[in-house]
Write a protein that binds this DNA or RNA. Structure first.
Length: 419
DNA sequence: TCTGGGGTCCTAGGACCC
DNA sequence: TCTGGGGTCCTAGGACCC
C-alpha cells in the first residue's frame, strides 16, 4: 500500500482567529489581557477563553453570563477595528497563496497546492501565517492542515486555542473515525441526539453505517452527505462559495410588540436595510419572506413569490405587511422578533421597473408612484453615501429607537456581502 | 442555555404541466 | 373519462453554521 502524502493530495489550510472580537479587545486594551472579556450589550457576541472557562458562550444573555463569571469585563465592541484587523489577516493569507476563500470575518480556507513550491510545505505555510498574524497584527490564530476543506476545518477546531494541527493524509481516516459525531459539519444537537440514539456516537460508527440506514434516520440528502464526509469524501474546492442566494434582516423586539402600526414601522426599517443592500449589489428578488417570532420563541414564516423581482423599500414593505398580518392570525400574542428576507434573486439593471402587485396598485411599474419609489430610494442611497447612514430616512423610522437591538455596525459584520 | 443577526440547505406536501 | 409517472415551482418549517 502506498502511503498518501501531500505530494499526492493537495493540502488545504483552514485558518480561524481565536475568540476574534474578544481577542481584539484584549489587544487594544492591555489591561484586559488574561481577564475574562465579554463583547456585547444585551447578549454576548463573543467571549474570551478566560470567560469560556466559566461556561460562558455566545449567544448567552449578558446577565446570565455575569452570573456564571462575575469577574468578566463587558465591552460594547470596536466594530471598525474588527473589520480593519480582519483585512490585515486576510492580506497575510494572500501573501502565501492567491487561493483564499474567506467564509466569515474571522475564518478562511487556503489552497496551497499551487504555491507550495515557492512558499514552502503546507505546514511551513501554516507556521508562517501564525507567526506573521501574531507579530504583525497581534492576534492568536489557529490553523488546520488536511486534504479536504472538511478535515482542515475539523483540524483547526481541534487545534484551538492558538495552535496548529496537520492531519497526515496517510492516517486521516483513523484520526477522523475516533472523533465524536458532533465534530461533523451538519451535526448539531438534534442530529447528534438522533444518531446517538442509534448507537452512533463516533465518526467511525457513522462511516460504518449503511447509507440507506442513515437516510432513514436523517433523510436522504443528509444521510448520504454525512456518510460521504465520514469517509472524507468532500468534493468542495477552495474558492467555491458563489453569490448570496438571499438577503435579509431581522430585529429582536425585547419584551414584544402587539401593535400593528409599531410592527409596521419595524418592518419599514428592515425593508429599508434590505432594499439598500440589494441596490448596492445590483440585485432584486421575487420571493419575500417574513419571519415572526412569539414569546415562546416559536417562529412562523410567511412568504410570497411575485411575478417580477423587486428591490425598493416601498415594495418590500408593501409585500411584507399582509404577511405579518397572516402570521399573526396563526398565533395570538405579542411579537418578539420580526425578520424579512428576499430570495429568488436576479441581477437588476440600473433602472428596473417593478411589477409586484395587482393592476391598479400604486406600486405597479410604469405607474408614476412605482417608479418614484425607486428613485426616492436611489436619492436616499446617494445622500447616505455622502453624509452618513443616519443622515436621511423616513421620519417614523429615524425617530423610533425601538427594534434596533444590536448596533448596526455589528449587523454589517455579519453580512455575507462581497468580501 | 431561554438566545443576536447574517446566512445555507433539506424536507414534504400541493399545484400544475406534460 | 380515467389513469400513471415525472418534473418544476411554491410554501412552510426546521436544522445547522459563523
Amino acid at each position: 500500500m502506498i502511503e498518501r502524502t501531500f505530494d499526492m493530495v493537495p493540502p488545504i489550510l483552514h485558518v480561524d482567529l481565536d475568540a476574534f472580537y474578544a481577542s481584539v479587545e484584549q489587544l487594544l486594551r492591555p489591561e484586559l489581557r488574561g481577564r475574562p472579556v465579554l463583547v456585547g450589550g444585551g447578549v454576548v457576541l463573543a467571549a474570551s477563553y478566560e470567560a469560556r472557562a466559566y461556561g460562558v458562550s455566545a449567544p448567552m444573555g449578558v446577565r446570565a453570563a455575569l452570573a456564571r463569571c462575575p469577574g468578566a469585563v463587558v465591552v460594547s465592541g470596536s466594530f471598525d477595528r474588527y473589520v480593519e484587523l480582519s483585512k490585515a489577516v486576510m492580506e497575510i493569507c494572500r501573501d502565501h497563496t492567491a487561493a483564499v476563500e474567506q467564509i466569515s470575518i474571522d475564518e478562511a480556507f487556503l489552497d496551497v497546492s499551487g504555491s507550495r513550491r515557492i512558499t514552502g510545505e503546507a505546514d511551513e505555510v501554516g507556521r508562517s501565517i501564525r507567526r506573521r498574524v501574531r507579530d504583525e497584527v497581534g492576534l492568536p490564530i489557529s490553523v488546520g492542515v488536511a486534504s479536504t476543506k472538511f478535515l482542515a476545518k475539523v483540524a483547526s477546531a481541534r487545534a484551538k486555542p492558538d495552535g496548529m494541527l496537520v492531519v497526515d493524509p496517510a492516517d486521516e481516516l483513523r484520526w477522523l473515525h475516533a472523533l465524536p459525531v458532533r465534530v461533523m459539519w451538519g451535526v448539531g444537537p438534534v442530529t447528534e441526539e438522533r444518531l446517538v440514539r442509534h448507537g452512533i456516537d463516533t465518526v467511525g460508527r457513522l462511516a460504518a453505517t449503511e447509507p440507506a440506514a442513515l437516510a432513514r434516520m436523517l433523510g436522504a440528502g443528509s444521510g448520504r452527505h454525512l456518510h460521504a464526509l465520514a469517509w472524507n469524501r468532500d468534493p468542495r474546492r477552495v474558492g467555491g462559495g458563489g453569490r448570496a442566494g438571499s438577503v435579509g434582516a431581522q430585529s429582536a423586539l425585547g419584551r414584544g410588540l402587539d401593535d400593528d402600526r409599531e410592527l409596521g414601522r419595524v418592518l419599514l426599517r428592515l425593508a429599508d436595510r434590505v432594499s439598500g443592500r440589494l441596490r448596492k449589489k445590483g440585485r432584486a428578488g421575487r420571493t419575500i419572506t417574513v419571519r415572526v417570532r412569539f414569546e415562546d420563541l416559536r417562529a412562523v414564516t410567511r412568504s410570497v413569490t411575485l411575478p417580477d423581482a423587486v428591490r425598493s423599500t416601498a415594495a418590500l414593505h408593501h409585500a411584507g405587511m399582509p404577511l405579518i398580518a397572516d402570521a399573526r392570525r396563526s398565533r395570538p400574542g405579542p411579537v418578539t422578533l420580526v425578520g424579512v428576507s428576499v430570495s429568488n434573486l436576479e441581477d437588476a439593471g440600473p433602472v428596473q421597473l417593478e411589477i409586484p402587485f395587482e393592476p391598479g396598485d400604486p406600486l405597479r411599474p410604469g405607474s408614476p408612484e412605482g417608479d418614484a419609489h425607486l428613485r426616492v430610494d436611489e436619492q436616499v442611497d446617494r445622500a447616505r453615501a455622502r453624509f452618513g447612514k443616519e443622515a436621511v430616512g423616513r421620519a417614523s423610522v429615524l425617530l423610533d429607537r425601538r427594534g434596533r437591538g444590536v448596533p448596526d455596525a455589528f449587523r454589517e459584520l455579519a453580512e455575507k456581502d462581497d468580501r
